[in-house]
């Protein structure tokens, strides 16, 4: 009996010992595992997201750019002078950043806005009075839009002054002109949305121009002769009516929030892609001398080179 008891006791102790041992094993395993998680970039989760190893090597720096979908618009390396602010003024990049800011704040604004007469104006008042940071949100959207118009113009100015539209970048300049038009239209369609006097009269003035379009507007040259009237001309198509009213608000809203953003995104994609394909940013490149101009082969008229000139 005593034996049995002892045995029994010993059995209990044995079990306890075993459990203790197991617990220790488990603890060590857990500690080991935690230790291994400290090397974040060795985990399966990490490796599934970031496809390549990152370390201090040159190759790794390049791969960091090339294997990231957001950064791979960049080349891995660029001309050492091309990073200078004095050359590009950063205006293209800033325009793009402002577009991102506008998209972000714009989506937030959409949560609070109904594009319907009566409601629209009240939504803005509500946004300014009751929504946390609503005024800041609206202000940021508005000022970023104005700033973007400015930066796009300055970008174009610098592209012109550096002659960056010359071969082989002619087409990208044309894409740029379309981007500028879309930027202006984006800003203009947003102007009506608060449905206040400012927007209403600005759009009234703007669409009076449409009414006067040659051939397609009823008040424009040859419009009436072609059968245009208030109810079938371009102005009607833009406003969805013959006056600036509920339909105009809705159309403005859809162009502003869906139509033009999609268009401008497509053109931006082409624009950035072409910057890369045209050999990256155009300069600052070595100056060229007049004596180095290669004569064109076109025709036979090659005037004897004159010295001097400018």
């Amino acid at each position: 009996m005593a034996d049995e008891k002892q045995n029994g006791k010993g059995g209990l102790i044995g079990v306890l010992e075993k459990v203790k041992g197991d617990t220790k094993d488990l603890k060590n395993r857990a500690l080991d595992e935690i230790q291994s998680y400290k090397d974040v970039d060795k985990t399966q989760l990490y490796k599934s997201v970031f496809r390549v190893k990152h370390d201090e090597s040159q190759r790794s720096r390049a791969l960091g750019i090339l294997t990231n979908v957001f950064l791979h618009l960049h080349p891995a390396k660029i001309n050492r002078d091309a990073v200078r602010y004095s050359y590009t003024w950063g205006m293209g990049g800033i325009s793009f950043y402002l577009f991102v800011v506008l998209t972000f704040t714009g989506v937030l604004l959409m949560f609070y806005y109904h594009p319907t007469k009566g409601q629209a104006y009240r939504d803005i008042m509500y946004l300014e009075a009751d929504v946390p940071f609503g005024t800041l949100l609206r202000n940021m959207h508005r000022w970023a839009a104005h700033l973007m118009v400015i930066t796009v113009w300055l970008h174009m100015f610098r592209v012109f002054l550096t002659g960056s539209y010359k071969k082989p970048r002619e087409f990208n300049w044309v894409v740029g002109v379309v981007l500028m038009l879309l930027t202006l239209l984006l800003s203009f369609t947003g102007y009506l949305l608060p449905d206040d006097q400012l927007g209403f009269w600005a759009v009234t003035v703007g669409t009076t121009m449409a009414m006067n379009t040659p051939l397609l507007g009823y008040a424009g040259p040859f419009g009436a002769q072609l059968g245009m009237n208030q109810f079938n001309d371009v102005r009607f198509a833009l406003l969805g009516g013959s006056i600036v009213d509920a339909n105009a608000l809705l159309r403005s809203y859809i162009w502003h929030c869906i139509g033009i953003p999609i268009l401008i995104s497509i053109f931006m994609a082409v624009h950035f892609w072409r910057v890369r394909k045209d050999g990256g940013i155009s300069g600052p490149s070595p100056v060229m001398l007049e004596s180095e101009i290669k004569e064109l082969k076109r025709g036979a008229v090659v005037a004897p080179m004159k010295s001097g000139g400018r």
């Binding site: 202000n139 940021m140 104005h146 203009f188 206040d196 006097q197 209403f200 009269w201 003035v205």
Partner: peptide, 26 residues
């Protein structure tokens, strides 16, 4: 954006012409 508020005029009113009625600055 903190220092300057975006303008909000009276609600749109076709019967009350703004004078001068100006397009956006650009």
């Amino acid at each position: 954006s903190i220092t300057l508020n975006a303008p909000l005029e009276e609600p749109a009113n076709p019967n009350l012409t703004m004078n001068p009625a100006k397009a956006p600055w650009y």
